[in-house]
Design a protein around this nucleic acid. Structure first.
Lengths: 194, 194, 194, 194
DNA sequence: AATGAATGAGACTTCATTCAT
DNA sequence: TATGAATGAAGTCTCATTCAT
């Protein structure tokens, strides 16, 4: 891949993100995608075997960006609750500011594409080897402050409310302000804390 | 014009539920649907104007069935926590035993079909006139036991974890046993209680 | 055919005339036809083998009605020009007052249905044996007042202008008043007279 | 989007003209059209948005060709009658030699496609800007030789016989020879002359 | 390597006709 | 005999993918 083609690949993925988020996978013809990416239809097929592979690659991309966004430094002396709330607020901010990415992910996990992919992967596995911020938190010293429970339930209590609420945000039904974001983050903490 | 065979209409809706849940709206051709329902393609159009209307009708049906399932008698002297946990367990049981319905609803609310429908409607409005079980609970005397917060956040904390976890259940990644169901229900209660 | 069924046959033909004139043969489904005729779809097939036969039967009917309308008594001492103009005005009046019939006939003769039918039949053959009014005129004593020419050309000069103009009338582009009707009839006479 | 192959577009229009003339708009499936034009079905839709647009485009094409055919030089010192007869003979010759075009136009003006188009446009408006040959004639110095009458009636008397007769020609019922063509043209002139 | 015209399988839908009641 | 629900062939159009340039 020459640098030029890497650029083109990104143009395609960017256009795809927009189009998929706006119209859904099935209302985003390759021709339209090509036009928005300012490449020829045929060119897309040099970078991706077919539409499915493009969608999976885009998932990869969006997922990685999300993980990277959540990696952030935290003051060491912070309390577990403060730490968790901090991570949560980061997450909400990121997703609220990247509605296309959120819409794409929701669509992906709700379609035949995302079934075989573990849902928790969304937030519990870091980019290429590194641990995700949440993964570090849940497996680190804060563990003692959490009520002992099945990991699946823990993730559901931690992330379920966010995804639920953000759907309404991204459909324009709600706008989240800081007080509400805090309400949510603290609610989640109360759900999982010891 | 107004067909009399409620039976055939149901056959079609049943086949549609399966097919939509298994393959998604866009990978469920009318021809396949007809075959599974054991009717001719043209017959579907006697009962539903087009595919969209069929999808909306199915939503109606599934939604009503869900609401009906949640209506249950509760001992009057029960505590708010016990009441909430009871409702929650009911909900989880129902959805876990009806994975097609759950998948269909998730898909519906995540598609252009369901956008104009408030997400909370899922659980906060009862079937034709009656109040839903959750609606009664949240607007009833238990209100005093809840932490004051924005309604949207409240619903997110109450229902977000369930929908999150049930996706994994319906993809076959997890099987919920009673202890875990209790963990979840109690976590939710802790998130919203005073 | 009992009287009752003759009635029903007429209801069907009447509905067909309306529907065909308004929407064209190909935008007039049998179901709609049945509804407008207040009979069941299946019943239509007791009276007509299929849609084509219905169309041909309707043509027959409309054609006969037209011929009958043109049969009219004329004072014996009238001049050939007066006679011709009289017949012509009759014809125009009838067709202008029966726009559905006119539209149907135009459509019929312009479709694969009417190709094998001689166009002149329209006006040159009377109902069941009788001679049509125009036939009588052209073959009667007035013949001497006509310029000798091929029959086809004669009919074209006589009837072409009427059908041409009535199309605009039936599309609502023109409304014919008596002066114009006279202009037309006299123009036709000038075209064919000795 | 803007295809370069004018050739292919013409192939499609040629095939369409044949098919529409032979079978009518509604008995000319896109698949058959594609086969006759030796292109894939999908290709037609690169050149025309849908079947309707194809029909309108074909009308455009046929209309222009007809107008162009009628433009011809006339000796300046010719009499109005000779001029009119000359134009008429031209018209008849052209249409008799292009029966598909004639059938297509008749069908077009007799269908919902052509209703909003004034019937006279057929011959009274020239190709893109230029005046049609008949338009020039009727509005030129010959006007003084015509009997004063409503324009609609004038056109009907001039063009009605031609379209009437040519239907039979194009159904193969008659073959026009020069004497008959002259009879017709002169009859028309007698109908409209002063 | 890039382009985009061409392809044709397949989706949705309509509607003439049949047939069980 | 009348009914109208059921049928499925056939029509229009879309769009992922290919391939000649």
């Amino acid at each position: 891949m020459t640098p030029t083609s890497q650029q083109k690949r990104n143009d395609i993925l960017d256009a795809a993100l927009e189009l998929f988020a706006e119209h859904g996978f099935h209302n985003a013809p390759m021709a339209q995608l090509a036009k928005r990416a300012k490449v020829a239809v045929g060119s897309i097929y040099r970078y991706f075997k077919d539409k499915d592979e493009l969608i999976h690659a885009l998932h990869q991309e969006v997922d990685t960006a999300l993980q990277n966004a959540l990696v952030s430094e935290v003051a060491p002396a912070i309390s577990p609750q403060q730490h968790f709330v901090h991570l949560m607020i980061n997450l909400i901010h990121y997703l609220q500011e990247h509605p296309y990415e959120f819409k794409f992910l929701e669509q992906y996990y709700n379609s035949p594409f995302g079934i075989e992919i573990k849902r928790e992967k969304l937030l519990m596995s870091g980019p290429s080897g590194r641990q995700s911020a949440f993964e570090q938190f849940f497996s680190g010293p804060a563990k003692k402050s959490l009520k002992p429970m099945s990991a699946h339930v823990l993730y559901a209590l931690a992330f379920g409310p966010v995804t639920f609420l953000l759907r309404d945000v991204s459909s324009g039904l709600v706008k989240l302000d800081e007080p509400r974001i805090n309400e949510l983050a603290e609610g989640c903490w109360n759900a999982i804390k010891q």
